[in-house]
Nucleic acid binder design. Sequence first.
DNA 1: ATTGAATAACTGGTCTGATCACCTGATAAC
DNA 2: GTTATCAGGTGATCAGACCAGTTATTCAAT
Lengths: 238, 238
Amino acid sequence: MTAAKPKTRKKNLSHDIRERLIALLEDDAYGPGSALPSERELMAQFGVGRPVVREAMQHLQVMGLVEIRHGERAKVAEPSIGKMVEHFSGTMRHLLASSSANLEHLKVARFAFEKSMVQEAARMRTSSDLDRMRRIIEAQAGAMADKESFLSHDREFHRAIAAISGNPIYTALAEAMFGWLADFHADTVILPGREQLTIDEHLEILDAVEAKSEKRAAKAMHDHLTRANVLYHRTHLN
Amino acid sequence: MTAAKPKTRKKNLSHDIRERLIALLEDDAYGPGSALPSERELMAQFGVGRPVVREAMQHLQVMGLVEIRHGERAKVAEPSIGKMVEHFSGTMRHLLASSSANLEHLKVARFAFEKSMVQEAARMRTSSDLDRMRRIIEAQAGAMADKESFLSHDREFHRAIAAISGNPIYTALAEAMFGWLADFHADTVILPGREQLTIDEHLEILDAVEAKSEKRAAKAMHDHLTRANVLYHRTHLN
DNA sequence: ATTGAATAACTGGTCTGATCACCTGATAAC
DNA sequence: GTTATCAGGTGATCAGACCAGTTATTCAAT
């Protein structure tokens, strides 16, 4: 049952095997969550050595297509934009660490993205969206003492705005950008003593979204992010 | 010189080695383009077996941090957003293939993104930007016969618009989204016999950008992308 | 001396086979 | 019936060897 090689290019063997495995995953042979054959079975099935199978599987894991745990059989991962963007985070972190210019570019991109998101939210929001935002703000207001928890709720607030669009790509991007910038303390910093200001700004955003005023919402978000940036730069220079 | 192990967690060994290698790359020990030690040297230096070193290096390659070629020493890759997004393409392709809903979400995202880009372009464009756009359109008009070349120029046109922003993240994203959707023939399709229409629409966009009219530019881009979509759906149903 | 082809010395790629570490499920003990 | 133990399967790692490309060296032909 060893499939005949279609055309062996001068390329890597593990590369071919990887593509064959991807083809298997996409040809609905294995559904999400199901377990794939063991490495030893695969090496027999494809007629290659163990290292080739291993490297191919590792590659698939890095791509986020499968989940591998010691002792268990590899399982097919459920494709999700959020998970894949998360896998991309390590790479992005290195990119940001290598160049402050890229960090600046990302800040600009997030700035535009959040403004676009909040306008979309003002256009599409339902009453349940408003409830959700309000609940998050209240929870955040109740967590002013715990900096970690406060930041977590902040993150959730911005994610909720993106989620109103109904597009998971937006949600994943918003979440990822927040995390990347937070890693470098470059944006969305919470200054001690300024928590109430953050809450007020979130409330202003909520108010604008409730009023379905794209203009007001965009301005509120603009002010919110600008303040965070200005404060950061000021404290950073001291 | 074998560095002492700080604390062997219960985690993967190759994971630790990978992080140590990344640390080396970020601590300016190796500049972009320089060659790292060979696998055999690394396994001696870290006191681990060859598979561990290999998996770590492979992982770095997938992340786009190093370039590995058979027979040569691995070289440090120059960090670039474009390259890393490109590395991400394989994953994204799988994600799109697994769910038509995600493809739809991506189309919506690109739609909004292109509109945002063209408005930014209308705001920031210099005369040299206009020249560049004009030259691309002319080249595209001269390549109506060759479908492949025509599409390539189309791609370049949209990339040029994103490039006006001066933000490489935008350029990389625009380029990547175009490629992903083109792979699935889902958008930016060039219908035979409609080439002149595409050219006219590009000219209209150029005109609006030249006039620095964000509104007109956004509408022109909207019409451009909407038409491509409508035509696609119509021909797809036949 | 210069040139160019054979060659030696790397390098990554792959194979084999064994051992270790971890998880799971079946069995045995209580 | 519940818990403890253990055997089997699985991925993780190691060791040594060999294959397959690349590069630097060598040495003969000019």
